[in-house]
Design a protein around this nucleic acid. Structure first.
Length: 262
DNA sequence: CTCCAGGTTCTGC
DNA sequence: GCAGAACATGGA
């Protein structure tokens, strides 16, 4: 077993924050899917203990190298301050883009428990079985393997099944090199990917910090902050006020909104 | 049983 | 361009 020290980081909060669903909790350990690995990991105060990945992989995947200085500066007042105080120890995971894309195509008009179910069923029906840490898992399938719409339907994906099948043959390898707006336009050309899902994919899968996923919870909290304004105006506000830190601040606010809803 | 969920798309003004 | 409805399904 290897270990590493962390600062201002909460593993459980990070994993449970609705950005990622492909993990299980058992006997005090998290078993986290990451590409073809299952990372077995747990936290004790400032110490992370883990099996199945290198220090470098863990540090990158969990964004332990992320500099929070600018984010902290933008959360000095108002609702952002409260959200940062409560949820500032979560990091944005650096997920596999393909995995994140399918996850958030599944997310439309669903809840977190259902998205998790979709991801596990898709893995069971299409993914390769693997044995790691003396346990059996199903890896998330490769791009190109999600062709059968009826099997996708049996993963409780509903009307999203044809969207997944369409994205299965997409060519999105160059998105990394585009600017944010162009990358978002490209993603939104696929069926089932609108503004919000595109922002999730760009933030969680491609690391575009300026992405600001605007869902029903974010709309509520931003309208409470700014008044009854349109989505377009909210996104405009985030772009100009939060800039490259919009994604992180969104995640704090999202968690805050969920925890404090009536 | 009813209501809602990390929306998107189509339709009709 | 903008509001309203349809879209499948599971969880609370």
């Amino acid at each position: 077993m290897a270990s590493l020290q962390t600062e201002h980081f909460d593993l459980a909060l990070t994993l449970r924050s609705g950005q990622f669903f492909h993990f299980i909790e058992e006997d005090g350990w998290f078993y986290v899917h990451h590409k073809d690995r299952i990372i077995k990991i747990r936290q004790d105060r400032n110490k992370l203990m883990y099996h199945g990945a290198t220090n470098k992989t863990i540090t990158h995947f969990l964004s332990l190298d992320k500099d929070l200085t600018n984010i902290k500066r933008k959360c000095k007042t108002g609702i952002e301050k409260k959200a940062f105080e409560r949820f500032g120890k979560l990091r944005l995971l650096r997920q596999d883009p393909w995995h994140a894309s399918i996850t958030f195509i599944c997310s439309s008009c669903a809840n977190m428990a259902k998205i998790r179910k979709n991801i596990f069923l898709i893995s069971e029906k299409f993914g390769a079985q693997t044995k790691q840490h003396s346990k059996s898992f199903y890896l998330f399938p490769e791009k190109g393997d999600l062709t059968c719409e009826s099997t996708l339907r049996s993963c409780a994906t509903g009307y999203r099944a044809p969207f997944i099948a369409a994205f299965n043959t997409s060519s999105t390898t160059s998105l990394q090199n585009l600017d944010y707006s162009t990358a978002k336009e490209q993603l939104m050309q696929y069926p089932g990917i609108g503004s919000k899902v595109a922002d999730c994919i760009l933030l969680f899968g491609y690391g575009f910090g300026e992405s600001f996923p605007l869902d029903i919870w974010m709309r509520r909290i931003m309208q409470r902050k700014l008044g009854n304004i349109s989505d377009k105006e909210i996104l405009n506000y985030a772009a100009h006020t939060y800039r490259k830190d919009a994604g992180y601040i969104q995640q704090y606010l999202y968690m805050y909104a969920i925890e404090n809803h009536k």
